[in-house]
């Protein structure tokens, strides 16, 4: 099944042209501009944003839309995976060593996730890293033979997966109703609003990652439909 030779000749040519133009654009973008950059504006406003870590304040305050839509993308991907069919059969039960190792690693991962969530306000960390830790805990449990990767029953899974998007959206709409504009946090309580959004987003990201790893509709729904 070799691809035709014309393709093998044309693709490098296309890539070369693409690479040259993109490389020129990269070089030009790096040294061509000398005015004020967006980074300076953002870094100046960080103390007012409710989080002292610049990446967190960009994610949840300055570019809140982006993160909201990103959570919606995650939810959509999960809906797509769930609509394609039931989850794969669980992994075989683990041996003694793996089982006791999992008993140590999973609580540690969950604690690390909570720590990363809290520390995200002023140091590297935040909802995505914490969600990744929860996801890793669930994947570890799944690989050790747990049928649902530690996830609760199916209605709870649906609620948890949608929670991040829902809270984020309701927060934005609520702030709009209070006259402050969509996702424009009042200065005094910004820290707490961001923390609520981050905590729910962490749960949602973790649950979505685990459910995506399981790769299909939750078990209870499958049993009911058959």
């Amino acid at each position: 099944m070799r691809p035709p030779s014309l393709l093998c000749l044309l693709v490098p040519l296309l890539l070369l042209a693409l690479g040259l133009s993109l490389g020129w654009a990269l070089g030009d973008g790096l040294k061509g501009y000398s005015g004020e950059r967006l980074a300076e504006v953002a870094l100046e406003l960080v103390p007012e944003s409710g989080a002292t870590h610049p990446v967190t304040s960009v994610l949840l305050n300055f570019r809140g839309y982006d993160t909201l839509l990103e959570l919606a993308v995650l939810l959509t991907a999960l809906l797509g995976i769930w609509s394609l069919g039931p989850a794969a059969p669980p992994y075989p039960p683990p041996g003694l060593v793996l089982a006791s190792l999992v008993g140590w690693v999973v609580p540690l991962l969950i604690i690390t996730g909570g720590y990363l969530l809290w520390v995200g306000a002023y140091a590297p960390g935040g909802a995505f890293q914490a969600g990744a830790m929860l996801g890793a805990a669930g994947v570890t449990l799944t690989l050790a033979g747990h049928p649902t990767g530690g996830l609760p029953a199916e209605p709870w899974q649906r609620l948890l997966a949608a929670l991040g998007t829902l809270v984020f959206l309701l927060m934005g709409l609520g702030l709009m109703a209070l006259g402050s504009g969509f996702l424009i946090y009042p200065k005094g309580i910004a820290k707490w609003l961001i923390l609520i959004i981050e905590a729910t987003a962490t749960l949602s990201i973790g649950v979505t990652l685990i459910a995506a790893f399981l790769g299909g509709r939750p078990m209870s729904l499958r049993n009911r439909s058959r």
Binding site: L116, P124, G125, F128, Q129, A132, M133, G135, A136, V139, L209, F213
Partner: peptide, 11 residues
């Protein structure tokens, strides 16, 4: 780096 190691590589 943390996210890439956990999600990009691990997951």
């Amino acid at each position: 780096a943390l996210t890439e190691a956990a999600i990009g590589a691990g997951l």
